[in-house]
């Protein structure tokens, strides 16, 4: 879409928005429109030029800012934005599926309602395009419930399978953030029993129980990343055959003279490490430190038992 179309699309939303929510501050309106303050003020200066022929004084959009608040006196019947276009509908439906719409009652019903507010003429285009974008392959059943628990600041309980130990453990967690990284969804949060921040792989969580216990968000700690708590790093060498594929996923990898590839990963979590190394079926070799080499060897031996 051209910049001019994008501007028109914004203006067709802006007039109705101010008409529906009069007296909101310039910053609030800018945020609602997804633009900066300066850009919004420019749009507000432009709008009084807009009107309908024959352009008598009352035929123009009358929008003004008073005490940093935005009002509209005459909206020229622009009191609601246009309905969703097929492309907007597909984008929203796909985002919903990214979070696992099919497993969530709220998302499924939201999508049904969404389809009803598309103009009839756009419904076929919506269905056609919707079949051409598939994000559900990355979704997991637990994602909508986890994200709602984060928004509502409710503690959650679940069984967690920690690789290497071979059994699940019950956890009660104050969920902080859900994030997709390297093709996996992770939940970071404060483990109540352990009194510490922890990271969980969502596909290794059993059914989620959202409790009534509310919590206050903790002071912002460093953004959670896949295991990194500053412990001794682990060096892993990948076979030459696997090297080009691994290079795609790791920004900082070193090529060895024989074509193999050396990668350093954080070494804070032996259980995560062993499962990860095993998943390469011998194409990944931990070379240091000694505890990590031993830990992977033991896990491989256990799998043969």
């Amino acid at each position: 879409m051209s910049a001019a179309s994008e501007r028109l699309r914004q203006l067709l939303f802006l007039v109705p928005y101010v008409s529906r929510h009069p007296g909101r501050s310039v910053d609030e309106v800018a945020a609602a429109l997804g633009v900066g303050r300066v850009e919004l003020l420019e749009a507000l200066e432009f709008l009084p030029l807009v009107g309908r022929p024959p352009f008598e004084p009352d035929d123009f959009v009358d929008v003004y800012v008073e005490d940093d608040k935005v009002f509209v006196e005459l909206d020229q019947r622009l009191h609601a934005p246009p309905r969703l276009t097929a492309a907007e509908g597909v984008a929203l439906a796909s985002a919903a599926r990214l979070l696992g719409a099919s497993a969530s009652e709220a998302l499924t019903s939201a999508l049904e309602k969404l389809e009803r507010v598309l103009p009839p003429s756009a419904r076929e285009a919506f269905r056609q395009a919707d079949r051409r974008l598939d994000v559900e392959g990355s979704a997991l059943a637990g994602l909508p419930a986890v994200s709602m628990a984060i928004a509502e600041r409710r503690e959650v309980r679940f069984d967690y399978y920690a690789a290497g130990r071979g059994q699940t453990e019950r956890r009660q967690v104050q969920p902080a953030e859900l994030f997709g990284h390297q093709g996996q969804w992770y939940l970071s949060g404060f483990d109540v029993a352990r009194g510490a921040e922890r990271l969980y792989r969502v596909d290794r969580m059993g059914p989620l129980e959202v409790t009534d216990a509310r919590f206050e968000p903790r002071p912002e700690s460093a953004p959670a990343r896949v295991p990194d708590r500053g412990l001794e790093p682990v060096t892993v060498v990948f076979s030459a055959a696997r090297a080009p594929f691994v290079r795609e996923r790791f920004g900082e990898a070193r090529s060895l003279p024989d074509g193999r590839l050396e990668v350093t990963v954080p070494g804070d979590n032996a259980r995560w490490l062993t499962g990860w190394v095993l998943s390469f079926g011998g194409d990944a070799q931990v070379v240091a430190p000694a505890w990590a080499v031993r830990s992977v060897g033991e896990a491989a031996r256990a799998s043969l038992g």
């Binding site: 609601a80 985002a95 919903a96 599926r97 709220a106 998302l107 019903s109 309602k113 507010v117 928004a151």
Partner: peptide, 18 residues
């Protein structure tokens, strides 16, 4: 004109999250 889509607060919240 875009009609009121009739989304419940839960539905809107989860759509927004997604």
């Amino acid at each position: 004109y875009l009609p009121e889509p009739g989304l419940s607060p839960d539905e809107l919240a989860v759509l927004y999250a997604a």
